[in-house]
Nucleic acid binder design. Structure first.
Lengths: 190, 190
DNA sequence: GGCATTTGCCTAAAGCTTTTAGGCAAACTA
DNA sequence: TAGTTTGCCTAAAAGCTTTAGGCAAATGCC
């Protein structure tokens, strides 16, 4: 009975890898046990239940994505920052589709508040400092940016733009240009 | 052994209702059988497998949503049409969260091509006729509108805007205003 | 180093979902 | 009314989740 050295952290990482390979939906405690060549029940010493596994993967992905975005934003401002932010997002989703899906898992409010989701919101606001927006416009803009990026990336990931021209990259660039223009020119709401 | 009168259509509708009640993820052949007070195996005379059930619910939701959008668009143009389109989308998602989720199910290309998803794309293009866009800008704009609406609605549905001010309705209106402004003023890409 | 405790993975088992196979009776069809 | 089709049934296998209890490896203490 050799000990494999399971920990919640190793399970989470392996779960994230599994998600990228087979899809977040297909990540099960059983599949993970097979991957470690260990009996299923053994994982329950490290995980409360399968929901906890999913939640952990989600939190891990949020954190990892936030780190990447933070890197991408470093030293940039204005449209440059906007594009870097958007591209970090899209690149992550393309490199790690399962983790990206995981990051969209609905978390309970307490968990969400303690997650890297908070950093995402802060970084979005940071980008908007390069534009001349005051509240409540800034919040509206935060929500719009989140919606566009999330929406585009998930439609693209779902194959929504497959086999259709023009190249999704062009639309992506066009959208970033548009948002920049919009944020620079939009009259204040009153 | 009373015959309940199961058909693929009744099962699909009941599945859609179930999705709204308990979430699309929780729609199982077993749960559906319980709802009809019938043994699980009986459903397999009407459904090839559980994937077919999910696909049918997705197609049903796409169709229903397209009908609503078509109604909303009737007789409208320009920003009026844009707002009607957006609101039909959001209203459907709020009234039928499970069906809306279902409509986002990834379909295989052939099924997608034969689905009401095609009508959705056509209607989006119809709205853009009220703005002065030529290809490829029009396609970029179709993708952007789809992304924003889908993204906003799914973030809102996932509780992303809960307990945060301002009211999501205000952001929604602000976003529609912004998109209208953008589509009216954006310089042609070249 | 030897011994006790803790920890990690195991077997066993129950409950749920999916899916297939084969059967019987109800409902059409002539 | 007899024959055929159809609809729901029982039975059963296979996979996932989760709990309970056990034994052996690792850890800590004298």
């Amino acid at each position: 009975m050799v000990r494999v050295g399971l920990t919640p952290e190793r399970l989470t990482l392996a779960g994230a890898e599994l998600a990228d390979e087979v899809g977040f939906e297909q990540v099960t405690v059983s599949a993970l046990a097979r991957r470690f060549d260990v009996k299923v029940a053994s994982l329950y010493s490290h995980l409360k239940n399968s929901q906890e596994l999913r939640t952990r993967i989600a939190l891990f992905a949020l954190e990892e994505l936030a780190d990447r975005v933070a890197d991408a934003l470093a030293g940039r401002a204005g449209k440059d920052a906007l594009a870097a932010f958007a591209n970090a997002y899209r690149t992550y989703a393309r490199e790690h589709p399962g983790r990206y899906d995981a990051a969209r898992l609905r978390l309970d409010p307490a968990t969400a508040a303690a997650s890297a989701g908070v950093r995402h919101a802060q970084m979005t606001r940071a980008i908007l400092r390069g534009y001349d927006l005051t509240e409540p416009d800034q919040t509206h803009a935060v929500r719009m940016l989140g919606s566009v990026f999330h929406g585009y990336v998930s439609l693209e990931l779902a194959g929504g733009f497959d086999h259709s021209k023009p190249d999704p990259q062009q639309s992506w660039d066009w959208i970033i240009d548009s948002l920049d223009m919009l944020l620079r020119n939009r009259p204040t709401d009153n």
